[in-house]
Amino acid sequence: MDIESSSISSTTPFKNMTPREMVTHLASSNVVVVFSSTDCCFSTVAKNLLFSLAVGPTVIELDRHASGSAILAALCQLSGDTRQPLPAVFVCGKFLGGVEILLAKHINGALIPLLKEAGALWL
């Protein structure tokens, strides 16, 4: 599910939220969330891995979101990383990490059990 600036109108609960509150709300309201940028190859790898596992993450493309730069700043604060923290992957409201963590968990066999436990995967 893609959430872009056009799909979040002034009547949604996001209107009066700070960017950090938006991140927290989206992450806790969806099983798997990927904050991404359409031109980021690392984001593409993370999304493709999740889709290949039959996980349908909620994807927020920050370069297409009206509050994208503010949300990116909030992600930097949450992750403790001042560099670009994309992709930022959340599972069950908890920050999992970026593409490196996602791939490492997949390689060491921890990702599929995590996704099953979260209810994002029914294999």
Rank of each mutant, 00 (worst) to 15 (best):
L26K: 06
A88G: 14
D81H: 12
L111S: 12
G80S: 01
T44V: 10
S10G: 12
G97V: 09
F95K: 02
V33E: 03
I112M: 08
N108L: 12
A110H: 10
V32T: 05
C92E: 14
N30F: 02
L50R: 01
V23A: 03
K94L: 10
T11Y: 13
P19W: 04
I8E: 11
A110P: 08
N16W: 11
D39E: 03
C40N: 09
E4V: 03
C41E: 09
L103Y: 08
Q77P: 02
S52N: 10
E61I: 00
E100H: 15
S67M: 11
L62K: 10
A66K: 11
L111M: 11
S6D: 13
L49K: 09
A110I: 02
P85R: 09
S69Y: 11
L75D: 08
L78C: 01
I8R: 04
L115E: 05
M22V: 13
G93S: 09
L75F: 01
I60N: 11
H106V: 00
L123T: 14
F35Y: 01
R83D: 05
H106Q: 13
A88R: 12
A88K: 06
A73G: 03
S69R: 13
N30M: 07
S6E: 10
I71H: 04
W122Y: 14
I8H: 02
L78D: 07
I60V: 15
I107P: 09
G109F: 05
V31Y: 05
D63N: 13
S69M: 00
M1H: 06
D2P: 00
K15Q: 15
F95A: 12
P87G: 03
T12S: 15
L53E: 11
C41Q: 09
A66I: 07
S43P: 05
F51A: 06
R20M: 15
P13W: 02
K15F: 12
A66F: 10
H65P: 07
I101S: 03
P85E: 01
I101L: 10
V99W: 06
P57H: 11
G93N: 08
I3H: 05
T24V: 10
W122V: 15
M22D: 07
A70W: 00
G119F: 10
T58Q: 02
I112K: 14
E21F: 11
S67E: 14
S67I: 02
V33F: 00
I112H: 08
F95T: 02
T44Q: 08
R83C: 04
G80I: 07
V32D: 01
E61C: 08
V32N: 00
K15C: 13
W122E: 14
V45T: 07
P13G: 13
S5V: 10
G68W: 03
L49H: 09
Q84Y: 12
A120H: 01
F35H: 07
M17G: 12
E117H: 14
V34S: 05
T58H: 05
G93D: 04
V34K: 02
V55K: 10
L115G: 12
L114N: 00
L62R: 13
V59A: 05
G80R: 05
G80F: 04
E4T: 15
G93Q: 01
T18P: 15
W122L: 13
F42M: 14
N30I: 05
L49R: 01
S79N: 02
A74W: 01
V33R: 04
E21M: 10
M1S: 11
A27I: 07
G97H: 08
L86V: 07
V91S: 07
L114D: 09
S9M: 06
L123K: 08
H65L: 13
S5Q: 08
S43V: 02
A118Q: 05
